[in-house]
Amino acid sequence: MTAQNVIETPFSPLAGPATAAPGPRAGIPDDRELLRAAVELTRDLTTARAAIYWPDMLVSAALGYGGVAGAILFTHPPAAILCAVVGVLGLYRAMLFIHELTHIHRDALPGFRFGWNLLVGIPLLTPSFMYEGVHTLHHARTRYGTVEDPEYLPLALMKPWTLPLFVVTALLLPVALLIRSAVLVPLGTVVPPLRRLVWARISALSINPAFRRRPPEGEFARMVFWQELGASIWAITLIASVFAFGLRPLLIALVIASGAALLNQIRTLVAHLWENEGETMTVTAQYLDSVNVPPPALLAPLWAPVGLRYHALHHLLPSMPYHSLAEAHRRLSAHIGGRDTYAKASYPGLFPLVARLARSTMGGR
């Protein structure tokens, strides 16, 4: 669920793109050499290592919650602001493990899904069901960049004002999640039409307003029930805490959560080039519409943590654990060289990517 669902898109009858021309990558054929090399050179890197996942997630969560506590308890502004920054970065990194949960085999890291939901997903009101079964559609060969892709908007072809709106609306996400879990989900248990609406429209971490989620079934439906129950109890507890501790602690926590959501939205803004207007794309075309920000970009681990600085490579190897992506990138770069398809998805940093996207919305590439 994202607040940017108010943005009109070429996927909606309400508005058209800034230009009617299709994206420039839809007709790119697959680079068979690249696809073969990506698989063959990385066969030994596919095991998710619990000794990396667990400490990384736990330390990130501890820093995040410690930052929130410090921002609430410290009255000296510089100390409180420093704690808030630590809180934003820690919670942001911990939250992004939801991306890993959608790709790793459910038996690869025993207990990790439960532990992450208990410590991060439910406290942040974004349990893993909000991404599981959704993000994999983004990687589907025939869905990427189309109206059926929940995580794609042709932002490069849209109006210039959509970019700041896309970013700023992320600030509303924590409040929206609080209302969803504390009010809408409980009401939905007694009002079936509302329950169906909440599930279809505001139960997925998606950015495509045309996306409608199908009802959960089987074991997944049972998981959704327990995760929704936990999130609703926690959301109601947060609201009730105002009567015991006043409004200030909750407001500070929401501001920090909004900061993490804003940072994630900025990362999302540059995760792709967003140049496809609904056509089916080859795997290579999807790769070239995605972004790597490899070293020496120094700040990338902060705004694109948990391996997301290698987002284009991730689209070639979706099941590759985040801790293996740097080595996979090194091997592919050394084997293929810097003048072919693989190198074309690498960019120097955040600001050049934002500038490129802004130019695209104004008619230039």
Rank of each mutant, 00 (worst) to 15 (best):
M362D: 07
T169W: 12
H135A: 00
G16C: 07
E217P: 07
E151C: 03
V190Y: 06
V168K: 08
A253L: 13
V85G: 09
T102Y: 01
A240M: 12
M362K: 12
E275F: 07
A345F: 05
A71F: 14
L254E: 06
R196M: 09
L229T: 09
A240R: 04
Y342A: 03
P174D: 05
R330T: 13
G90K: 13
A304W: 02
R339N: 12
P10L: 08
S324A: 10
L288E: 00
V6W: 11
N5Q: 13
L177I: 01
A61T: 04
T126R: 03
A48I: 02
L269R: 06
L184M: 12
T9M: 01
G349S: 01
L197K: 11
A21K: 14
A285E: 04
T47H: 14
A69L: 15
H315P: 00
I7E: 03
I72N: 09
R201V: 04
W161R: 13
L357E: 02
R93H: 09
E219C: 06
Y144M: 03
L238H: 09
M362W: 08
V242Q: 07
G66P: 11
G307L: 10
A355M: 11
W226G: 10
D44I: 11
W274Q: 03
W234S: 07
E279L: 13
T75D: 15
A204P: 06
V134I: 15
S360E: 08
P154Q: 03
L247K: 11
A300R: 05
R365N: 09
G87L: 02
P164M: 11
E275K: 10
P29N: 08
M362R: 15
E40Y: 08
V191R: 03
G16P: 05
F112P: 01
V68P: 00
V191A: 13
N5F: 14
L109Y: 09
L250Q: 05
G115D: 12
G259P: 04
G16Y: 06
P24D: 02
V120W: 12
K344A: 14
